[in-house]
Design a protein around this nucleic acid. Sequence first.
DNA 1: GACCCGTGGGT
DNA 2: TACCCAAGGGT
Length: 346
Amino acid sequence: MHSFSSRLIRWQRRHGRHDLPWQGQDAYRVWLSEIMLQQTQVATVISYYQRFIASFPNIAALAAATEDEVLAHWSGLGYYARGRNLHKAAQIIVEKHNGEFPREFEQILELPGIGRSTAAAICAQAYHESRAILDGNVKRLLARWCGIEGWAGNKKVEEKLWQQAEALMPRRNVATYTQALMDMGATVCTRGKPKCGECPVQTDCVARQTDRIAELPTPRPTKAVPERHTTFLLLMSGRDILLEKRPSSGIWGGLWCPPQLDDGQGIVADYLQRNGVEVSERVELEEFTHTFTHFKLHITPVLLQVAHKPMRVQQAGSVWLDVEEALRAAIPTPVRKMLENLIRSF
DNA sequence: GACCCGTGGGT
DNA sequence: TACCCAAGGGT
């Protein structure tokens, strides 16, 4: 019987993916791909990755950019702290590592946005170091092949999985092996309906031997997601719309949004009076829902045409942008949808 | 340890 | 439809 790793490596050479744009690239590109791929599927990432590399072809270019430019490239991808941390890390690399992506695991791990698994993935893929990763794919694969019970979010379960990942890690062909784990997880050992007949380690898979493929990995405990309501004020002066920069902490940190009135923050009329806004036309648009992982947001957009741009909302952190220009800014997906609807209505 | 942080695809 | 959860990390 061949070892676990040798079977995966052989499988990867025949059946794995070999055309991903970051494969076989330098540490900067591997790093960027690993950050974009956190909690995000390959098909979603590819076009973002290509636009990002076209605008920021190297670490120096990324470090020299503004956070706003970086976030504009991240717009729609979600988890925007990834973009902010990526930018911060690029500046740290310029200042403390002479602009060269660090060569040591410990130095890589210190960079913002890079944890144990991502640091290991970069070392394995860019530097061919024997380092174990533990992402969603590996967790699922090992939970089944080793027959490990319990939710991977549990500390003890996660430690068991890390232990197995380290024990199975080969010394050679580490980039191929690491890619094999992820390609196997994405295409064979999938969450639903895994293709066990195509799996190179099916013969000694504990979940298969004990008929627990459907039960493993143990799913996360379910929790009810709360629902919230909010109003977005689409203040328009001709084709210009008012956007405000959000604080870096919290949802959509550092992105640009129209003024927002959450539940309990008063009514539209109060906002307008507080800010000295004279409205010439008011249209309540259709409510829509935006679903996050941890809550559901009901959004009511209110279109407010103003006669002139009020002085009191032209402070720092606020900007009037042509709607077309706003679509190219660092905006979250629901704001993009509202702006696209606006343009259609013109 | 628990919670926060986005969005889209698969079932 | 509703639900799960992705190449996780930060606080």
